[in-house]
Amino acid sequence: MANGWSLIVGLVFIVAFCGASWFLAPKGDDQTIWRSSLILSAAACYLMWAITFLAQWHPLVQPQRNDIRHLH
C-alpha cells in the first residue's frame, strides 16, 4: 500500500493543490495572503509528512517491549 511511490504521489498532489490555491485564491485585497498562506502551509505540511514517512521507510530499529501480554 504505502511504499516509496507515496512520496511522489504526495508531491504531485501538493503541487496540484498549490497550483489550485494560486489560481483559485479569492480575488481582492487579500489575494496575496491567501496564496502565500495556502502554498506555504501545504509545503510545510508535506515536508513534515514526507520526513516522517522517510524515517520509517527503512527503519533501523524495531519497537521492543517486555510488558507484553499476548496482544496478538
Binding site: S6, Q56, W57, P59, Q62
Partner: peptide, 16 residues
C-alpha cells in the same frame, strides 16, 4: 510474559 520481544515488520508496508 516478562520477556523482551521485538516487533516484526509487515513486509513492504510503511505506515502511511
Amino acid at each position: 510474559e516478562g520477556q523482551s520481544v521485538t516487533a516484526i515488520r509487515e513486509n513492504g508496508y510503511t505506515y502511511p
